[in-house]
């Protein structure tokens, strides 16, 4: 079974990479871009089993390693099997 963990910078944290990309998009002619923020997506393959247990496992992974709670938030999702 496949899960995804999406990690995003918290709202109050300045995203310097996002700002640079936002500027580059503007220079390419995408003048309407109001903001860009950069996150990460982790695709995790787990053995087939109980979806609730898998979701709990993904949340534990995110809390312990994949995200830094000081700066980031995360969401987990399971692909329907």
């Amino acid at each position: 079974m496949k899960g995804t963990v999406t990690v995003r910078l918290k709202g109050g944290v300045l995203d310097v990479e996002g700002k640079a990309i936002e500027g580059a998009l503007g220079r390419l002619g995408f003048a309407d871009v109001a903001a860009v923020r950069v996150g990460k997506v982790f695709e995790v393959t787990l053995p087939d089993g109980d979806p609730d247990a898998a979701r709990a496992t993904l949340e534990a992974m995110a809390a312990q390693l994949l995200a830094n709670p000081v700066m980031e938030t995360f969401e987990v999702a399971l692909e329907p099997s």
Partner: peptide
């Protein structure tokens, strides 16, 4: 040390990139 939770806060990309 910050990642291990032994010190508060976090260090991220320099403002000037």
């Amino acid at each position: 040390l910050t990642e291990a939770g032994l010190l508060p806060g976090a260090l991220h990309r320099n403002a000037g990139l």
